[in-house]
Design a protein around this nucleic acid. Structure first.
Length: 387
DNA sequence: AAGAGCATCAACCGCTATGGC
DNA sequence: GGCCATAGCGGTTGATGCTCT
């Protein structure tokens, strides 16, 4: 089932054991939250709490209940006094920093449930939070919003990020608009930790042409391949449940205001393009959200659109592209390849290894002005096609 | 088992843009 | 036009947990 839900604060109690959140209360110890920080007024103690069920969380928010109610409902054991009450004895001018406590989260969620967002500074005061409005806003947007989605970045999402970053660079918020439920912070972190790590492995700069080539010629085709494999295995299972294919993409329709992103890989095998780039078939038709002409249902997210428009033919081409390295698969046909496999060796070795795939690619060095901001395959191919 | 090093990501900071007065 | 408050963005930090030795 999809792990996404419309809980008022779904990921709040995310322990670092990765498992899908239970629908039933669970007892767990969490060292709230992970990050005590510089000039922290109150260093939170570990809480022994029961994980609330989703329905309990929703009840709490819907009824405008506070932490006491939640605590009573769950039998929560918290360290002496709540952070809020502790803070209440402090100088009013003292602002809390650092990790948010469960109590603070409940206060914020309840207040927003009643009064809505906006006017963050006054909201923080009115809600009884000793936080800056800025901090409240960030906490809400990045963590507490009902439609925020957490968990691993799926292959489809990775594909989107790579493509959109190629177009817009570090415009994280803009990129995030096209990944429903994902925050700019999360995408930024993903880029800095995962993508830059790969660039480092290849001993080249993440913004270098070499790395872009690797991404374009190897990583993206691999992602497409993986998505196709997942789709295939799902189809073979005959369950028709797309969330089983890419669980994290399964965003509940009711909680997502569809950004109507239209990254359509509708034609990975577009002949006019392929004619110039025989081994590269990315044809990413992208439209700005406001410009999209495709009617999309509320749950018609960019990712699902992307997912559903990937054809088996595209997978075949992608597979050809990636055929120089073997992707291990389990018996069910599910790709079990580790990402790192793609990035063994340095970039020149990788590109040499995929030399066959490079046939027909333009000489990147000759692209001149295009090089700085255009590195998607489509752009390169179109450029060559037009020149 | 213990320490070192690395990876992750929540939360902060500084800056810019925008809107109201 | 100037000032101030607020919102939003991108970059950075650093504690925590995991993995490796």
């Amino acid at each position: 089932m999809s792990r996404a839900c419309a809980s008022p604060f779904p990921p709040l109690y995310k322990p670092h054991v990765s498992s899908s959140p239970s629908l039933h209360p669970t007892t767990i110890q969490i060292n709230t939250p992970r990050r005590p920080v510089r000039s922290l007024v109150h260093r939170p103690l570990p809480l022994i709490i029961k994980l609330p069920s989703l329905s309990q969380l929703m009840d709490v928010a819907a009824a405008g209940m506070g932490f006491d109610d939640l605590e009573e409902m769950l039998g929560t054991v918290s360290p002496a006094g709540s952070a809020v009450s502790a803070a209440g004895s402090e100088d009013e001018a003292d602002l809390r920093r650092g990790p948010w406590t469960v109590e603070e989260d409940v206060l914020l969620v309840n207040y927003i449930a009643k009064h809505g967002e906006g006017r963050w500074n006054s909201l923080a005061r009115s809600a009884g939070l000793k936080r800056t409005g800025k901090s409240c806003r960030l906490r809400w947007l990045n963590y507490l919003r009902p439609d925020v989605r957490r968990g691993n970045i799926t292959a489809a999402e990775q594909l989107l990020i790579l493509e959109l970053h190629s177009r817009w660079g570090n415009r994280w918020s803009k990129i995030a608009q096209h990944l429903p439920g994902r925050t700019d912070n999360e995408i930024k972190n993903y880029w800095r930790t995962r993508v830059q790590k790969h660039a480092k492995q290849l001993r080249c700069d993440v913004n270098s042409k070499q790395f872009r080539d690797v991404v374009r010629c190897i990583w993206i085709p691999r992602l497409v391949e993986r998505i196709q494999a997942e789709q295939a295995s799902s189809a073979a299972a005959g369950d028709g449940d797309m969330t089983a294919v890419a669980p994290a993409v399964g965003v509940p329709a009711a909680t997502v205001s569809a950004p109507a992103a239209c990254l359509r890989m509708s034609s990975y095998n577009t002949q006019s393009v392929v004619g110039q780039c025989p081994h590269h078939h990315h044809h990413l038709n992208y439209s700005e959200p406001s410009q999209t002409t495709t009617a999309m249902s509320p749950d018609d997210t960019s990712s699902s659109a992307l997912r559903s428009s990937l054809t088996t033919e595209a997978a075949a081409h992608a597979h050809n592209l990636a055929s120089t390295t073997t992707t291990p698969m389990n018996e069910g046909g599910v790709v079990v390849q580790q990402e790192e496999d793609v990035f063994g060796g340095n970039w020149s070795e990788l590109l040499t290894a995929t030399n066959d795939s490079m046939i027909g690619l333009p000489d990147f060095a000759e692209l001149g002005e295009f090089e700085d901001n255009l590195w998607s395959l489509e752009d390169l191919c179109l450029h060559q096609h037009c020149s």
